[in-house]
Nucleic acid binder design. Structure first.
Ligand SMILES: [Mn+2]
Ligand SMILES: [Mn+2]
Ligand SMILES: [Zn+2]
Ligand SMILES: [Zn+2]
Lengths: 148, 148
DNA sequence: TTGATATTGAAAACCTTTTTCAATTATAGC
DNA sequence: GCTATAATTGAAAAAGGTTTTCAATATCAA
């Protein structure tokens, strides 16, 4: 039920991944990783910068951009298109998953098991397109925001 | 099979719609409407500006932004999030429809009859979200680009 | 501990979108 | 067809957000 204490958390996993890829583990990167890995919402660069400075005083916004670039390259983080902004970042999906997003607080959750194959084929037949990918996002109120 | 010659086309419809809403029909607006209404692809402001100047020499980029704003407000045009850009504009959907987009030439087609209700309910049950909207876009190669 | 080099933040550059403003233009009413 | 009024226009400036440049600093393999 509960995770064993020694299970590596995202924070450690991400730092290890940076390290193993030859990138250095620095104080600004630790601050950024800490924030993004633990956020239940997709965050924009400026939000990460603001929250990040609480952990590492001298953090620069440029470093936020550069670090997100690397985390994305390593597949640890993914960009999310949100009505509130198109450059939001969230921990990456685990395989083929899509997002449900709370329109009130921004909370993001992945789900799997979409059932759009039939639809995909029908559209392919009707339009003549050869379909290769899809974007799907659901929006609504999370359970917290619903009860308020 | 073919549309009668007197069937109002999008160009005329949009100009009428502007007029009926109290907006004035001007040369720059005609140029912009002409281009966006007839485009098979979603276009960005700068593309519209470039193409528009071919029709109306003195067109300003500001006017493109302002006109798109009004066309969107009137429900004639909608914003499309594209991998190539998040501020692309396309004639609006007719009711509840979604897009298939060609990753090669950008061609956009609407389709209807999505079948994601079961999925929506399953996700609602599993996550506790009350789902109100969804975004769905399919990507692939259009029939022209496929045969090349 | 040291040295090669990756990383950093500040500042400048860049690019896109919005605001400001004086001149122009559409259109309703005559 | 004119005219008066108010909407619309494009240029220029301002505002935002992202990227590039660069000299100083910090990491980490040896
Ligand atoms: Mn899917
Ligand atoms: Mn739908
Ligand atoms: Zn919520
Ligand atoms: Zn977007």
């Amino acid at each position: 039920m509960t995770k064993p204490d020694n299970a590596p958390n995202l924070y450690d996993q991400w730092l290890d991944s940076l390290s193993e890829s030859g990138y250095r583990v620095t104080a600004p990167r630790r601050a950024i990783v800490e924030i993004v890995a633990n956020s239940p919402r997709a965050l924009g660069p400026l939000e990460i910068y603001d929250q990040g400075r609480a952990e590492y005083r001298g953090l620069g916004l440029v470093t936020v951009y550069r670090t997100l670039e690397k985390l994305e390259e390593l597949g640890l983080v993914q960009r999310v298109h949100h009505p509130q902004g198109c450059h939001m970042y969230l921990r990456a999906a685990d395989g083929h998953e899509h997002l449900v997003l709370c329109t009130s607080c921004g909370k993001a959750e992945y789900f799997s098991g979409d059932n759009i194959d039939k639809l995909t084929h029908a559209v392919a037949r009707k339009t003549g397109f050869e379909i290769r990918e899809h974007w799907l996002q659901l929006f609504g109120l999370c359970s917290d925001c619903k009860n308020k």
